[in-house]
Structures are given as structure tokens and as C-alpha cells.
């Protein structure tokens, strides 16, 4: 039996231990804010936090989730919007929006580590997150804005 937390709630799982966290979250637990994009950690659409670190949930198996705490986009802002989400709204980042929850989860984990990032650091931190609509410029601007608010 695999025991872990999703968004601060205790959970157990006794299915295929090789199943990626992504598909547990989406198909079994119903947290569909975490998106499937590539299945091999190349696009970042499935980014969630494991013990606070950004991970690609498509490449973390359920057995690796055992004993850890997972946060998804649904759990990031229990009391109102997170400053990163607010910045995303103010800058009006999204077009189709599909990759944006993964972008936001990546940005939050990054800003937790780096409170005052420069452009190059942002580019490096966000390089694993694809956006086919091409909203990169606004993502960078929103991260700067959120950094200011968090400071």
C-alpha cells in the first residue's frame, strides 16, 4: 500500500506501482488541472510539487510517491489566488491555457528558491515548460511581477 498526501489530504493507492503520478492524479483522483503533454518530461504540462519541488508527474511513478507530499494546481491557493496566479491574470498570460497550470507550478517552485531572479535565471528555470501558443514573453513578465509581490 502506497501512502502519501495530495494537497494536504492523506491518500492511499494499491494499484500498479509503476503508474506515473500524472495518471493517478488525472484518471483516479480527478485532479485534472495537471495536464498530459508528452509523457517523457519534455514539456512540463504535468508539473506538480513533490515535497515542494517541481517534478514532472508523467515521470514519477506511484512507488516513488510513497511517503511524500504532492501539491497540484488545485491545492496551490486554498485561500484566494497565489501571487503567481494573480500575476498570470494581471499580465493576461494564457492563450489556450493548456500548459499554463504546469508553467505556474514550475514558476511557484522556482520563486520559492529564487526570490529575485533575472531573465537568464527565469529562462533556465522555465526551459522545460513548452507553450505552443508562444506566451513565453508574458510568462517571463508575470514571474518578475510575482517576484516583486512575494518580496
Amino acid at each position: 500500500m502506497i501512502r502519501f498526501k495530495v494537497n494536504r489530504t492523506e491518500r492511499t493507492y494499491d494499484g500498479d506501482p509503476e503508474m506515473p503520478l500524472l495518471w493517478y492524479l488525472r484518471d483516479i483522483a480527478g485532479f485534472t488541472g495537471t495536464k498530459f503533454g508528452c509523457g517523457i518530461s519534455l514539456c512540463g504540462a504535468c508539473t506538480v510539487h513533490q515535497n515542494g519541488d517541481a517534478v514532472r508527474s508523467c515521470s514519477v511513478s506511484m512507488k516513488e510517491v510513497n511517503g511524500t507530499s504532492i501539491t497540484t494546481i488545485e491545492g496551490i491557493s486554498a485561500n484566494g489566488l497565489h501571487p503567481v496566479q494573480k500575476a498570470w491574470m494581471e499580465i493576461k498570460v494564457p492563450q489556450c491555457g493548456y500548459c499554463q497550470t504546469g508553467q505556474i507550478m514550475q514558476a511557484i517552485a522556482f520563486l520559492n528558491q529564487n526570490h529575485n531572479p533575472n531573465d537568464q535565471e527565469i529562462e533556465q528555470a522555465m526551459s522545460g515548460n513548452l507553450c505552443r501558443c508562444g506566451t513565453y514573453q508574458r510568462i517571463r513578465a508575470a514571474i518578475h511581477q510575482a517576484a516583486k509581490e512575494l518580496a
Binding site: 485534472t32 488541472g33 497540484t72 488545485e74 491557493s77 496566479q85 491574470m89 493576461k92 494564457p94 499554463q100
Partner: peptide, 29 residues
């Protein structure tokens, strides 16, 4: 005028429903 997308709040909170998120009771994959 500069109005935001209608779905913007749902998109940033993960509540927007894309095709990938559509469900029907009793469905198989």
C-alpha cells in the same frame, strides 16, 4: 478595450475543462 479572456480564472486555477478533462459516467480508456 483590454478585457481578459472569459476563461482566464479557470485556466490559472486548473478548473478549465479541456477535451483531455472530459468525462462520462462509466467510461473506459
Amino acid at each position: 478595450k483590454d478585457n481578459a479572456l472569459f476563461d482566464l480564472p479557470d485556466i490559472v486555477t486548473g478548473h478549465a475543462t479541456f477535451g483531455m478533462d472530459a468525462k462520462m459516467p462509466g467510461m473506459v480508456y
